[in-house]
Design a protein around this nucleic acid. Structure first.
Lengths: 191, 191
DNA sequence: CCGGCAAGTCTACAGCTGATAACTTGTCAT
DNA sequence: ATGACAAGTTATCAGCTGTAGACTTGCCGG
């Protein structure tokens, strides 16, 4: 059968191909919305290799979450105008024409499953929450950081996944300004 | 076979029993997380009656969303201190020990499925968004209302479904105060 | 008393799920 | 060149999904 453009036998490369395929699949359709056969086929292998290399679908998802949440999206290092920059990035990436995939989409599409939600919680607390918290000064930084994340996640949900009309059709500038003001409440250290 | 406590043949009552069972099931496990057999069994009937009375699983979900989003949760009529009251209700209902089921849980657990998401969008725009918008004065009321909803939904997501530690263990009073301040940004009419 | 019609059920289908065990095939060191 | 081990595959499992058709059962008007 051997495919014309057959990949040479290479465990590391195959593992990586599965992981890459899984990242986009889980992000696009959520943990329960995709099967291991889809992921494997997209990587050009059979489904059994998922279990061989990642133990189980859940193990694969754990690694996907870890990788996806590790890359520093959404929180630029410059603390100069954190609220405005974050709001701008959010609005741009949730624009109807944008096709950005990332941790927010992954979280929103998989959080319905309790086991997936627990894996996501670990990922947030290890990566995103920590980064966001570190960018804030003053007391209650963790709570303020997670409230900021909540606003971003909720906006992403309504604007991209659900697609409510007001947020979908809103003027980007206006939207950025509003989100910036809401974010500032938790970004700027309390007096 | 006839069950000992058999319900008398009553189409309306049976339909209602299925609907009630579906509301709690969909809210607890999401659209994709529950099967029509589970719902029917919980209502004491066979799965076929779901199709008989609601056409399909999707038709049943549509009615569930409509009913669930119609009841005026989360937005009290008194516009006196809308932000504070809404924030208080949110924090109370998302407390770890609370077992409140409602439209937010239903939305968050089902939004991953695009078909369900579209049904939810319709429900929001028909009921929740309209109520929330009507409570706001000033320009861009719809955008501000949906941003408020986004904050509520995101907080619900992180605090209840995902369970990030900072929000889960936060002092309720402090949390209510922070959410109130963020909500005020969109609730109070811009100068 | 009983016939008709609606309420409700049984059986079945075609397709999917994640996972396991046993099998074949390619590659590299000797 | 060849043997050994890893890489990859095929076959299969038990269970679930939503829905369709044909069936039985109970109630209510005459």
């Amino acid at each position: 059968m051997t495919h014309p453009t057959a990949r040479p036998r290479n465990a590391a490369a195959t593992r990586q191909a599965i992981l890459t395929s899984a990242i986009t699949a889980f992000t696009r359709h959520g943990y329960d919305g995709v099967g291991v056969r889809d992921i494997a086929a997209d990587a050009g292998v059979t489904a059994m290799l998922v279990n061989r290399y990642f133990g189980s679908k859940e193990g694969l998802f754990t690694e996907v979450v870890d990788v996806s949440f590790a890359e520093p999206t959404m929180v630029p290092p410059g603390p100069a105008d954190l609220a405005a920059e974050t709001a701008g990035a959010l609005v741009a990436r949730t624009a109807p024409e944008a096709d950005h995939l990332g941790p927010f989409e992954l979280m929103l599409r998989s959080a319905a499953n309790p086991r997936a939600a627990e894996i996501i919680r670990a990922g947030i607390e290890k990566h995103v929450g920590a980064r966001f918290t570190a960018a804030l000064n003053g007391p209650h930084a963790r709570e303020r950081a997670e409230l900021g994340l909540a606003l971003l996640a909720g906006t992403w949900l309504l604007r991209r996944l659900v697609g409510t009309s007001a947020l979908r059709d809103a003027d980007p500038g206006l939207l950025t300004a509003q989100v910036t003001r809401m974010l500032s409440v938790v970004v700027e250290p309390p007096a």
